[in-house]
Design a protein around this nucleic acid. Structure first.
Lengths: 214, 214
DNA sequence: ACCTGAACACCGTTCAAGT
DNA sequence: ACCTGAACACCGTTCAAGT
């Protein structure tokens, strides 16, 4: 009678999936190799048979997290809207899996989803009639804004109630400042820290409006 | 005869200065407490008499690195230009000291320089005649863009020759892709990775032009 | 071919002890 | 009041050994 397979054979796919599970659970993509090994039911060092080092693994994990942004993305006849939807999808995927900071620190993943995103966005700029220099520049600006702001928003994005409490604390800190030294802060403190999704949307619209021809 | 003072008494100021020295030397703000102690000629754990933990220390270091951006900053009668100069100064200070990623991961420092920057920028938006909501939003967008893009540019910003080599490698990777699957990348590959300062400037101008009234 | 486990060279942080 | 040093509970990674 056949042995029941105690656990699945290790490969890059199941390792990345396990890392994303741990990241989603813990709220941080900073997963230790030992914790990852335990989650896989395997010695921590077994992962090194499939990835050169942790950096290599983290790049693969980061790219895998972007799958929802590329899977089923459909180009429309409105290039500006395509760019907007793609950037919004990237942000959503990064925040959901807590991998924005990971990608920011590990650098370009050069993996499948990242390449697809680049192709879709460059294609949209070309369809909008932009010249090559403007198209390349717009691509870099929008990627930096999208990934960069997700990195800054990530620590707060987990729990709505907790996030609101943090914002309240920060506003309280501002109100405690001497009003004569910080008059503008005192005047605007009630308006600071709106929803970070709204802030992102404001900047994204501004960049698209300014960088892409009407 | 008096003992010569073997080394300076420890305080927050000299500890931050030492951490910034180490960060500038190593090209990364990720300094270990043990390395910091050695640099100070002191046991690693002595730092804990002056900072609650490493996070507390890193926030102080991050804010201290922003000193050049606030020191001697003079408000003009052109609010848009004030915002532009402030954001450019922040970027320069972050990249010089390699502290962008540190601030991104540690969150707001709530220290003197950060508060000064907030006051100067909010004041500029008010002087530009913006309503409170638009002013607060513009502040968040510009800070996220400035700090976020510096975080992404930081790993590359150290050495011009090395940076160019990295860009060349990335362009080579793009050219190796199948042209039928990635036509837009192939068309634009020669224009990708312009100077990151130019990319930043493009985005900054676009945001200011769109968010601040003309 | 793939995984294990000991080992190495590190971490941040606590706490009793020194001065 | 301030610093030391041992100790604790971790890290990423290498490499010989197992199967």
């Amino acid at each position: 009678m056949p042995q029941k397979p105690a656990r699945q054979r290790l490969n890059r796919e199941v390792i990345c999936a396990a890392a994303l599970e741990l990241a989603a659970e813990s709220g941080s993509a900073d997963v230790s190799m030992r914790a990852l090994g335990e989650h896989l039911g395997v010695d921590a060092t077994a992962v090194y048979r499939h990835f050169a080092d942790k950096d290599d693994l983290m790049r693969a994990v980061g790219d895998r997290a972007l799958t929802p942004a590329t899977k089923g993305f459909a180009t429309s006849d409105d290039p500006a809207d395509d760019v907007r939807r793609m950037c919004t999808g990237i942000r959503k995927a990064l925040l959901k899996n807590q991998v924005a900071l990971l990608i920011t620190s590990a650098g370009p993943t050069r993996n499948a989803n990242e390449l697809r995103i680049t192709e879709v966005m460059l294609d949209a700029f070309l369809r909008a009639g932009m010249d090559p220099d403007a198209a390349a520049r717009a691509y870099h600006v929008l990627i930096e804004y999208t990934v960069g702001s997700a990195s800054l928003d990530a620590p707060l994005s987990r729990n709505a109630k907790e996030r609101k409490a943090t914002y309240d604390t920060w506003r309280r800190d501002y109100r405690a400042l001497p009003a004569d030294e910080y008059p503008a802060i005192h005047e605007l403190v009630g308006h600071l820290y709106p929803s970070s999704d709204e802030v992102f949307s404001t900047g994204l619209s501004a960049l698209i409006a300014q960088l892409m021809p009407a």
